[in-house]
Amino acid sequence: MDGSTMIKAAQGSWTDVCAVEDIWPNTGVCALVNGMQIAVFRLVGADGERLFALDNRDPFSGANVLSRGLVGNLGERLVVASPIYKQHFDLATGECVEDAAVSIRSYPVRIADGRVWVAV
């Protein structure tokens, strides 16, 4: 797992949300953590596994749908596209690519013993 997210992890407590295999490669799922909806994405590429966690709520539509968006890259940024109006959100930071004034929260996430843990 990525070192930078470790540091942030201090802010929240870690929750085990699912097995890694519960998230199909290059898709997302939604986890309910302390009553909050967290979208967790699993990217699988030549360089191994990467996990990301964002708010599930799409700020443009107000619907809880981001876990159901398509993931990919725009230039250097890894993004998820909202399935409602197709805005892109940076998987690492939660910043909206189309409108930098809009951003959602990103959360630390890690894999341990084949399980996915999110810190909220």
Partner: peptide, 10 residues
């Protein structure tokens, strides 16, 4: 090249 996106994947 890259990972693809919500245009080319569908």
């Amino acid at each position: 090249k890259g990972l693809g996106c919500d245009i080319c994947k569908p």
